[in-house]
Design a protein around this nucleic acid. Structure first.
Lengths: 197, 197, 197, 197
DNA sequence: CATGAATGAGAGTTCATTCAT
DNA sequence: AATGAATGAACTCTCATTCAT
C-alpha cells in the first residue's frame, strides 16, 4: 500500500468527478432531475450510493454543474462555426451533424429537460435565463445573412428562421431519445430544408 | 329529503370532474407525472387535497384519463382534416393552427411528457404504444400525396416529411410551453415551409 | 307535511338511535373499532354517512355506548341465572345457550374485540376494567359451589373453573365468528364437560 | 476498501431482519395489522421509520412473513408431538405447555388476529386457508384415538373434542394477551379436563 | 331532519443525504 | 477514500368529521 503522491491523488479525484458527471449526464438527460434518483447515477457509474457526496454537495449541485457544461458546450459549438471553412450551407450542415452526435445530444437533451421543467434548481434556472439572454444563437445570424445574400437560404427574419430550425432539432431529439436510434443524422438535408431556398 | 335532485347532482359531479381534469392537465403538461404533486392540482383547481380522490382513484388514474383524452383529441384532429374543404396546404395550415391552440397545446405537451418519461403508469404506456401502432399520422399521407401531385408539397417520402413536420411542432411547443405565449401561431406559414415546395 | 308532535319526534329519534346502534354492533363485533369505517355502519344501517353524527358525537362515542350496553347485558345474564329454576347444570346450560345466541354473541364479540385491542377509547377501557373488577362472573360462584356439593360439578377452585369455562365460550365464538354458523349451540353439553364431573 | 467483510454484513443483515420481525410480531400480535403503525414497530425495534423498508417491501409483506413463520411453527409443533415419548396424556400436556409459552403465544395471537380480521393481505389469507385445508390438527387424531382406546381420553368424535380443546387454548391466550402474565401454563391439567375421562 | 360533497390530519412509503465502519 | 446502512422530510392516499344545500 504505497501511499499515492499528491499529483496522483489529484488525478484520481478528477477522474472520479468525470466518471460521476458522465453517468449523471446520461441519466439526467433521459429522465430529468426529478425522475433521476441518486442511486441510478451511482449504479450507472458503478460506485456506491454515498460516494457522489464526496464530490458534489447535492443532487442539485451535480445537476447545475452539468447544465453549466452543457451551456458552455453549446456556446462553443456556435462560436466555432465561424472558424469552419465552406459555404453557409456546409457550415450549418456540419453544426447540425455535430449536434445530433451522441455526446452532444445528451447535453442538448439535458438543456431541454431543464428548460421544459419547473423543477430545476434556482441556479440552473438562472444559468438558462442568462444563456437565453446572451443568446449565442445570435452568433449564427451573420452566417444566415451571408447565406441569404448568396441565395442559399430562404428569405425571412433570420432569428425566426433559426428559432424554427432549432425547434426541429429539439423535436427530433425528443423522438429519438425514446428509441436510442440515430436515424436523423442521415437525413440532415431534409432538416435543412426549412432554412434553405 | 334530498335537497338537490339527481340531475343536479349528476351535473355537479361532471363539472367537478372537468374542473379537476382541467387543473390536472395544466400542471401535468408542464411538470410531468412525477413532478406534479396532488397538492398542486388541488391548488390549481381550488379544492382540498383529498377531494380529487372522490373522482379519481389515484394520481395515476387521473393521469391515464388525461392521456386517453389527449390521444382521442389527437386522433380526432387527424381524422377531421379530410372533411375540411380547401387545398392540401390550406388543410395543413388549419391543422397546424388547431394544434398550436392553447388547449390542444396542453394535450400535446402531456403526450410529449408521457412519451419522454420512464415513469408513466403501465396503462398509459400501453395507450401510447397502441396509438403509436395505429399511427393516425398515416391518415395525413393521402393528403400529402395529393399535395405532392398538385405540386404544392415538396418531393420526398411522405412519412419522413410528416415526421419532420411534427418534430417542428413538438419543438415549438416545448419552447412556448415555458412562456405561455402564443407567438408561433402567427407564423404558421414559416413552419409549413418544411413541407412545401 | 303535517308537523309531527313532540312525542312522535321523540319516538323517531329513539328508533334512529336503535337502528344505528344495531348496525354498528354488527360491524364493530366483526371488525373491531379500527377495522370499522363509519361508512360501513352507515351502509349497514341504510343511512347517509353524515347522519350518525346527529346521534353520536363520534365513532368513539358510538363504540363506548355499545360497550356499555354489552357489559350491562352481560351483567344481567349473570344476575338472572339465579332466578331460574332447575339444577345447577340446567342453569349453566341455559346460560350457555343464551350466550351463544346470535344477539348476545355479537355483544360478547364486541367485548372480546375491545379487550383484545389496544385501540379502544380511554373510556371504554375504563368500563372494561371496572367490569373486570366488579367481576360479575363471581355471581356464578354460589351456583358452582352448589353444583359441587351436589356432586354435579367437578372439584377445584370455582373461579378457575369458571375462567376456564368462559375461555371456551370465547374461543368458540371466535371460530364461529368467521363462519356465520351456529354449530356449537347444539353441542353445549360437550362444552360443559370442562366443569362437570 | 470495504470496512466490513461480506460475512459480517450478511450477519448484520440477518440480525436486523430478526430484530424487526421480533418487534413486529410483538405489536402485530396485540394490535392486528390495521391497528399497527409502522412507527410503532420502528419504535419497538429502536430504529427509524424508514429502515424497515430496506428489509421488507411493505407493512403487508412484513405481516405475511410473520404469518408464514407462525404457521410453520404451528405445523412443527403438531408434527413433533408424535416423536415424543410417553402416554397420549403426557404428549398432549407437553404440546399444551409448548403452545402457552411466550414466543408461541405471540404466534398464536397473530394467527388469531389474522383469522378474525377482514383486512389481512390477500396472500396471508391464502396461507391461512391452505393451512386450514391441510389441517395439521388432524395429525393429532391418531393420538386421540389411541388415548380413547387406552381409556385415558373421553368418548366422542375426536375432531370435535380437538376443536373444543383448541378453543380453550385460544380463549385463554386472548385473556392472557392483555396481562402479559403466564398463569395458565401452571394449570395445564385443568385445561385438559375437557378431553380427559 | 337528511344528504353526500368537502376538508384535512395522519398513515404508509420513498429517497436525498448523513454517518459509522 | 469508499461503502451501504440508517435517518427523516415529504409525498400519496384514507377516512373521521363538518357543512352547504
Amino acid at each position: 500500500m504505497t501511499p499515492l503522491n499528491e499529483q496522483q491523488l489529484e488525478l484520481l479525484h478528477i477522474q472520479r468527478i468525470e466518471q460521476i458527471k458522465k453517468a449523471a449526464l446520461k441519466v439526467f438527460a433521459r429522465r430529468g432531475i426529478i425522475g433521476t434518483k441518486m442511486s441510478m447515477i451511482a449504479a450507472e457509474a458503478g460506485i456506491s450510493q454515498g460516494l457522489s457526496y464526496r464530490y458534489f454537495k447535492s443532487k442539485e449541485e451535480l445537476f447545475i454543474t452539468l447544465i453549466q457544461d452543457a451551456l458552455e458546450e453549446a456556446k462553443n459549438s456556435m462560436e466555432q462555426i465561424n472558424h469552419l471553412s465552406g459555404t453557409p450551407i456546409e457550415k450549418m450542415r456540419t453544426l447540425t451533424k455535430n449536434m445530433l452526435e451522441d455526446n452532444n445530444k445528451q447535453f442538448f437533451m439535458l438543456i431541454q429537460q431543464a428548460t421544459a421543467s419547473d423543477e430545476v434548481p434556482e441556479q440552473a434556472q438562472q444559468l438558462l435565463e442568462q444563456f437565453s439572454k446572451e443568446n449565442p444563437i445570435q452568433l449564427l445570424i451573420p452566417l444566415f445573412i451571408e447565406g441569404q445574400e448568396m441565395g442559399q437560404f430562404c428569405e425571412g427574419a433570420p432569428n425566426k428562421l433559426l428559432f424554427c430550425y432549432f425547434s426541429i432539432i429539439t423535436g427530433l431529439m425528443l423522438q429519438e431519445a425514446q428509441t436510442d436510434e440515430n436515424y436523423w443524422i442521415h437525413e440532415v438535408d431534409l432538416l435543412m430544408k426549412v432554412i434553405m431556398k
